[in-house]
């Protein structure tokens, strides 16, 4: 993984159209501004992880329950 040191107000460009701005650093919290085309999804990591966990637990182990329901 590429790791860059930045100061408040400094930026990073990813490709031609995504700009990351370090907007504030306060203790353990960093505020980051993201300028990206609307065609790019910007999702907090923990939310994506929650969805990933939920997908993993939803993998079907058995469909007996659904078959039973029909009767």
């Amino acid at each position: 993984m590429l790791v860059l040191s930045r100061k408040v107000g400094e930026t990073i460009w990813i490709g031609e159209d995504v700009e990351i701005v370090i907007s504030e650093v306060k203790g353990e919290q960093v505020k980051i501004g993201i300028k990206a085309p609307r065609s790019i999804d910007v999702i907090r990591g923990e939310l994506r992880q929650d969805i990933s966990d939920s997908n993993t637990e939803a993998v079907v182990g058995s469909i007996e329950l659904l078959k039973k329901m029909k009767k």
């Binding site: 939920s54 997908n55 939803a58 469909i63 329950l65 659904l66």
Partner: peptide, 18 residues
């Protein structure tokens, strides 16, 4: 929506968020 089957249907969940 993706359904997450549990031991019973009442305990099963559906993912409305994604």
């Amino acid at each position: 929506s993706i359904v997450s089957l549990k031991d019973t249907l009442a305990n099963s969940t559906v993912n409305l968020k994604a």
